[in-house]
Design a protein around this nucleic acid. Structure first.
Lengths: 154, 154
DNA sequence: CCTTGACCTCAAGTTGACTTCAACTTCTAT
DNA sequence: ATAGAAGTTGAAGTCAACTTGAGGTCAAGG
């Protein structure tokens, strides 16, 4: 069997995650590495599964903060098992279901509501505040945060 | 009939969009206003429909750039009709369908693939680059941009 | 031994969609 | 006529998730 530990470039190649991002994740406490005498990072193969998890979690819409929290629920003493990963991943289901549901709601209302030309908030409630699907983009985003009273035009 | 034109605060109240955002949209060329002698903005009621459109477009996941482009396809000489708005909104359908489809794919694979514990890119293709659902967050984001070769751990 | 490509750190830059601040000015109701 | 609420501008700040750059160090093959 060949070398146990992977240098950063190998991990980057295998995961598609840039080396700079891997260093960033380490600074943020999402992953860790051991160092050579010369100070270079060496990763255990275990890291690949962890990174796979991070990548999927992002796709589900979690921020790194939340992901770190989720990773924190993994056992620290032993190597996480399938069951450990499974438990966390299962927690995403409802979240995904919500996202799907609100996009479907939006799609259906788009036919009914924009189709009818009303575009009125009060009538069609097209903009559901607190809809998971609305959280695209970053930064201060109070859009959709407070219930507007009406948008009925002219 | 009362006054035709709305000051910025009234528009902000009615739409739930902050006055600062309205000024920003104007700088970005998404909306416009007329001015009083003193230089204050006054909006025609028409603006409410336009803002409603912008808000929904954002929910669908469009950036302001794309939204401006879409608004640009509206007739400039006459006030847009229901049919005009309808035409644009209809263009979102496929996009929404894609988003929904890729979230569903993710959800289903989550059961099969993380459930089985493999978390392997090559095998389960859980991370579909170019999946619309993946574009959450902003800033340079090359994640999911290049096809990784494998993430199969240990 | 030495070259060359991979790696290191730290600070600063990027992106999008805004917000916040300071320092005024305008409108409206009394 | 005037107080106070609401509006104005321009510049700078915010947030997440990274990237980029400068200036230097490490490690593996020839």
């Amino acid at each position: 069997m060949d070398d146990e530990l992977l240098p950063i470039g190998a991990v980057a190649d295998r995961t598609g995650i840039a080396a700079s991002a891997l260093r960033y994740y380490e600074r943020e406490g999402l992953i860790w590495s051991v160092r050579t005498d010369g100070g270079q990072r060496r990763y255990e193969r275990d890291i690949l599964r962890r990174l796979a998890f991070i990548r999927v979690a992002q796709t589900v819409g979690l921020g790194l903060e939340e992901i770190r929290a989720a990773l924190g629920t993994l056992p620290s003493e032993r190597t996480p098992t399938k069951a450990d990963w499974d438990r966390i991943a299962r927690a995403w289901r409802p979240r995904l279901d919500d996202q799907i549901a609100s996009l479907e709601r939006l799609r259906d209302q788009l036919s009914d509501c924009i189709g009818c030309g009303c575009l009125s908030l009060r009538v069609c409630a097209l903009y559901n505040p607190e809809d998971g699907a609305a959280r695209l983009g970053s930064g201060p985003r109070y859009l959709l945060g407070d219930l507007p009273t009406d948008l009925d035009p002219a």
